[in-house]
Every structure is written in structure tokens, then in C-alpha cells.
């Protein structure tokens, strides 16, 4: 017997939630308990009074599953609003990564040259290493990290995607 796999789509969802204990566990745990995927997840409180947080989740699944994910998120009591940025129209997505590279000689020069091209900033330097800060779309960061692998990549920290709708409306 074979277990069938269905074609997946990538979707970026943003959730406006109450900033209280357990909310993240509720959202993340719902994904696990119902078998949905989380590719990345970011969360931070965004209100002056610290009452509300925005969660940005990148997930993937066939369209009916994405629809179920949104409906299941909406069922959670501390979740006030769910927006599917991928479906809602033009939006911006950004991710930040810290990339540590170690090396000497040509590798070191190549690393700083590539970083310049990719508009990565040096935020720490020693005689044998750099830490770059790079912001951009996940694809751009993927490419940059792949290049750094060839010139002495040590480690990477990524924030996951944060996203907003384009234009004047609130998502």
C-alpha cells in the first residue's frame, strides 16, 4: 500500500492574535495536531499597549488544505483575524538572516565582494571571519547562503518571513 502525496502550494498567512501566554502554542500546536506544515513562523507584539501580536506563518498544502488551515486558525479564541497574503493580492515579504563565514585569502575577499553585490552588511568582523546581515525575499537569502557555502559558511540564523499587504489597507 502506498501513501499518496498531493501537490502543494506555498502560502503566507498573517494572524492578529492576543498577546497572552499560550497563544503561540495554540497556533503552532494546531498545525501539528492536524498535520499541517509550518515552513517558517515569526511572532512579535506590535501594539503600543502590548495587547496584540502578529504571527506570520509560511505554510504549504493543496488549496483545500490551505482553506482548512485558515478556518482552523479562525476557530482559535485568541486569533482575531487571519489574512492569506498569497491570496489577498500584492504584498511584500521580507526575511532577515545572519550569515557567518570564516576563511582567509581569496575566500575572504570573495565573500565580502558577494556580500556587497547582495547588499549584505558586515555586522561583525575578525581577522578570520565575518557575520553578514542580509534582508530580502527568502529566495534571495537562499541564493546568498548557497554562495557563502562555497567561501566558508559556518552558520546561519534566519528570522522567517514577515509580510504586509501593499497599499494603504490593513491586513
Amino acid at each position: 500500500m502506498q501513501i499518496k502525496q498531493e501537490k502543494s502550494e506555498r502560502h503566507v498567512l498573517t494572524l492578529m492574535v492576543d498577546n497572552e501566554a499560550g497563544t503561540l502554542a495554540r497556533v503552532a500546536g494546531m498545525f501539528t495536531s492536524r498535520g499541517y506544515n509550518i515552513d517558517s513562523l515569526t511572532v512579535a507584539d506590535i501594539n503600543e499597549d502590548h495587547s496584540t501580536s502578529r504571527i506570520t506563518i509560511v505554510t504549504n498544502g493543496p488549496p483545500p488544505v490551505i482553506d482548512q488551515i485558515i478556518a482552523q486558525c479562525e476557530r482559535l479564541v485568541p486569533v482575531h483575524k487571519v489574512t492569506d497574503l498569497t491570496d489577498a493580492g500584492p504584498h511584500v515579504e521580507r526575511e532577515l538572516a545572519l550569515v557567518k563565514v570564516a576563511g582567509k585569502g581569496d575566500n575572504r575577499i570573495e565573500a565580502i565582494r558577494l556580500a556587497d553585490i547582495y547588499r549584505a552588511r558586515v555586522i561583525d568582523a575578525t581577522t578570520g571571519s565575518f557575520v553578514f546581515e542580509i534582508t530580502g525575499s527568502p529566495a534571495k537569502i537562499d541564493t546568498f547562503v548557497a554562495l557563502m557555502r562555497e567561501v566558508g559558511l559556518v552558520e546561519v540564523a534566519r528570522t522567517g518571513v514577515a509580510g504586509l499587504m501593499r497599499g494603504s489597507d490593513q491586513s
Binding site: Q68, A71, E74, R75
Partner: peptide
Amino acid sequence: IDRSSINKTIH
């Protein structure tokens, strides 16, 4: 009454 019940298993 629960939107997540709609289209969950049957379209």
C-alpha cells in the same frame, strides 16, 4: 455554524 466544517472532507 462552524466555518471549518464546510469543505473539510467533502466539497
